[in-house]
Design a protein around this nucleic acid. Structure first.
Lengths: 229, 229
DNA sequence: CCCATTTGTCACAGCTCTGTCATAGCTTTG
DNA sequence: CAAAGCTATGACAGAGCTGTGACAAATGGG
């Protein structure tokens, strides 16, 4: 996921860039309106964080020009309490706004909301570990030549987590952080989810012993199946 | 994987240390900036968790000095919403930050992200002494070509303690401190644990004499097996 | 708005791990 | 030589962990 950050305040732009990179975005930057348009055309970002006050072409003009050509989500940066700017920006097609000063956490929340509303999702990338194949975009699992099995969103998250770290044992906390995020989940939820994933893996490859191993008191890991078995 | 935790809040430092040890890290601690630099040079950690507010040299200075010499990943601990500190730290070369208060799971997620971005991945932390191999991340023991045997958490702690000090006799008190922590354990618990470990070693290498020797009135040590036996 | 699916919660059974205690045998000391 | 102390061993009980099944709540789609 790529974001274009447009702000002539380079310090703030760096904080924004860092924050979004930490969330996994690719980030490009522009420090004036004209460069913003050039970057937008060259990089085709999925999201634009756009300050209103810019040299060489103001944010409103940039917004108008982009809206004449595309629906790329635009998040406006405005100065506190300038409602006139907010109304104008939203009228020109911006999707949301955030007023300075704001915390990184607010930025993350806003960008996620904008992207969710625009219906975007990352491109497909099938993961393969041993004879297990996972298509996260379709949430489909296949083991060897067995049937394709659908996974629920959380089952998919868990399997992806285990596949990324195949061959290693992940602690309960590490898995919960990956699946539910920093404050979410608990051991009971994880136990239940592991059970459901094991059932799906068994549907995809009946009769095999569990591909998810438990190291009691430590965590879970994905067993790499022997090709000969 | 070794982490250096630098925080003058000893309670928080202990919580961080416990959390990272649970994730399999070796952990060393410093409670002020100067000691942090000394520890960094002596221990060569793979990751530094660095508080900003420290006695005898603040976190920023520590960060600057380390960055002048190395790319060791640095995770800054900051107080909630002090963006100025965040900016300054990132500008000095810190790789990420986490704001207090935070949960252990946030810490785990952030450290993994930082290490992933720095291209590091956990190297195997398998210990080998003579023909004994211990994998603490799986709590598995192997002796020579014998079968792999699972250990319980305390068995694993004890064996690791003996392997670290292979060739030496450790006193009862030293072993109890390592396994149960200060003030924990007693001689009867240790005797029982040594017995259980001996049984596991025997499972892993049947028929051999005990690899754990007793020095009556003093303690226990790990016998280095002769290659010829 | 309804229905189906997904997820969270709870209770229970079984198993593992650890601590404790009793006993036997060996070693040391008086 | 006897007694005391130390070490090893075996067994048992309790706490906690793990897996499982079922049901309720939440969510999303039609």
């Amino acid at each position: 996921m790529k974001a274009l950050i447009v702000d002539d305040d380079r310090v703030l732009a760096d904080v924004l860039a860092f924050t979004l990179r930490r969330e996994g975005y690719q980030v490009v930057q522009a420090f004036d309106g004209e460069t913003a348009l050039e970057r937008w055309q060259a990089d085709r970002p999925d999201l634009i964080i756009l300050d209103v006050n810019l040299p060489r072409l103001d944010g409103f003009s940039v917004c108008r020009r982009i809206r004449a050509q595309a629906d790329t989500p635009i998040l406006l940066l405005t100065v506190r309490d300038q409602e006139e700017d907010i109304l104008r920006g939203l009228g020109l097609g911006a999707d949301d706004y955030i007023t300075k000063p704001f915390s990184p956490r607010q930025l993350v929340a806003r960008t996620q909301a904008v992207l969710r509303r625009s219906g975007q999702r990352p491109t497909s990338s099938i993961r393969t570990v041993g004879d297990i194949q996972l298509d996260p975009s379709r949430r489909e699992l296949g083991v060897g030549q067995g049937p394709t099995v659908s996974l629920t969103p959380l089952e998919c998250q868990l399997l992806e987590c285990l596949m990324i770290n195949a061959g290693h044992v992940l602690t309960y906390d590490a898995i919960m952080a990956h699946v539910w995020g920093p404050e979410g989940g608990d051991r009971d939820m994880l136990r239940q989810l592991v059970r459901r994933l094991r059932q799906k893996l068994d549907q995809a490859c009946p009769g095999e012993s569990s591909r998810v191993e438990t190291v009691p008191g430590l965590g879970y890991g994905l067993v790499l199946a022997s090709v000969h078995s």
